[in-house]
Simulated assay, not measured.
Amino acid sequence: MNDLTVGNPLPWPEGARPEPFVAHVGGIPVSTLSLQGLIDKMVLEAPLRRSLDQPAWLVFDCNGQGLSMNASDPAFRADLAQADLIHADGQVVVAASRWLKGPVIADRSSTTDMFIDSLKPAAASGARYYLLGGTEAVNAECAQRITAMAPGLQLAGRRNGYWTTQDEDAVIDAINAAAPDVLWVGTGKPREQAFCVRNRHRIKAGWIVTCGGLFNYVTGDYPRAPMWMQKSGLEWLHRMVTRPRQLAWRYLTTNPHALWLIWKHRHG
């Protein structure tokens, strides 16, 4: 992972440069940026980075599943290490930073909130989005919904998440032809991270952000937990109850592992 304190050649308006620190949680360096700080950084930086032909920034997320996979899957760990910024998608990650000594993560930056809350600022600034992932029906409906939610939002393009290895060059060509500022990649862990790392130097975008099942949450295909569950770190329980066949085994295995990893790495 690149050091968040150095290496950013882009000019920042006075007072706008974000907090550069990371909190080390469960063996992963997670940005301490708040949700709003992350959105501000993306909306400001992504169009500028693309216009200056800077390499795309890789932005990955960290939650209980990610903590577990980082420790148990060497290929995923290698891909995650290539991120320029890892944000706290899970409330347990935020809470853990407050249990440990060192920098504290400002708040949870769930990918769904990051996306939805960024729509109007992106529309106002002219930042162009590209949606990659989901089924064709979900991807198309998501595109329709967000352009209705944020009039003026520039949707550079979209594509479903189903392609073969032989199709990958064509997928990259289509993205580059659309010239997005932010490419949202929602094909699920670990496929989305592997795709981003493998193609980061071929993709012409300002930021590349992995987003899992985001498009399904925007369309309502996947229900979100009540706000009290989100704030108390129980959104995973809501997801497990509402989608038991897909998620029960994942949460029952990765959550205890993640807690153990947080304890194991508690000294940094």
Rank of each mutant, 00 (worst) to 15 (best):
A23Q: 07
V43Y: 02
H238D: 02
W260A: 07
L10K: 04
Q230M: 08
R17N: 08
R250P: 09
V138S: 03
E45I: 04
C196L: 07
E45Q: 13
L38V: 07
P121G: 08
V25T: 03
N2Q: 15
P9Y: 11
W207G: 01
G213D: 05
Q166K: 14
I175N: 01
G152K: 06
S232I: 05
E192K: 03
I39D: 02
G186D: 07
P29W: 01
H24K: 13
L80F: 08
N216P: 05
A71W: 00
Q166M: 14
P223C: 12
S125V: 11
G213S: 13
R128D: 02
R243T: 07
T112R: 10
Q154S: 10
P180Q: 11
G212V: 01
A143P: 03
C196M: 06
M229R: 03
P103H: 04
R250Q: 11
V30A: 04
Y251F: 15
R245L: 12
A71S: 15
S97Q: 09
P20T: 04
A75R: 15
P151S: 09
A140I: 13
T164I: 09
H257P: 02
L52P: 00
A78C: 10
L35V: 05
A81C: 06
F60R: 03
A258L: 05
S118K: 03
G102A: 03
V138H: 05
L247Q: 05
Q193N: 11
H238K: 05
E45Y: 08
D61K: 12
Q246R: 15
P13N: 12
S109K: 03
K189G: 04
A96R: 00
Y222H: 12
Q246A: 13
Q82C: 05
H257W: 09
Y129E: 02
L132W: 02
L155S: 00
V218F: 10
G161S: 08
R128M: 06
W236D: 00
R17P: 00
D113Y: 03
K204C: 12
P151F: 13
K120F: 14
I146E: 01
G126P: 04
Q166H: 14
V218A: 12
I208Y: 02
A140N: 13
D89A: 06
A71L: 05
W236P: 02
L259W: 07
M229K: 05
D113I: 12
R158M: 10
L131P: 00
A170M: 10
I116S: 07
